[in-house]
């Protein structure tokens, strides 16, 4: 799992990527984001090779957040072959995040 910083990196790894990608749009000052952060790490480990997991700090990468109309954190988005397929806003149980990944 890694933190994506630039739009170029995002385009290359997510939009032009293949397979399933989970994106966690977060902010360092957001309590619920910090509450679910451990789940995101666990999912990245458990689903290694199956799902790519990236975190986007919305203060560091406001352009990416804007591109997807993110107006709340945490927002979790799932991409498949570069296309957004589902989205959840707010802290969610780990089981629900896994369910979203299918």
């Amino acid at each position: 799992m890694s933190v994506v910083l630039s739009s170029e990196e995002f385009n290359a790894k997510v939009l032009n990527g293949t397979g399933k990608v989970l994106i966690d749009f977060f902010a360092t000052w957001c309590g619920p984001c910090r509450m679910i952060a451990p789940f995101i790490e666990e999912i990245a480990e458990e689903k290694a090779g199956e799902v790519e997991v990236y975190k986007i700090d919305i203060d560091q990468s406001p352009d990416i957040a804007r591109q997807f109309g993110i107006r709340g954190v945490p927002t979790l988005m799932v991409f498949e072959d570069g296309k957004p397929v589902s989205q959840m806003v707010g802290a969610q149980p780990k089981a629900q995040i896994l369910q979203m990944l299918g």
Binding site: A27, W29, C30, G31, P32, C33, I58, D59, A65, G69, I70, R71, G72, V73, T75, Q87, V89, G90
Partner: peptide, 17 residues
């Protein structure tokens, strides 16, 4: 509209506005 303007957590989402 939750996460698209409607929010229940000002400290979470205020910065977007």
């Amino acid at each position: 509209l939750q996460g698209r303007g409607v929010s229940y957590c000002a400290t979470c989402d205020g910065n977007f506005f």
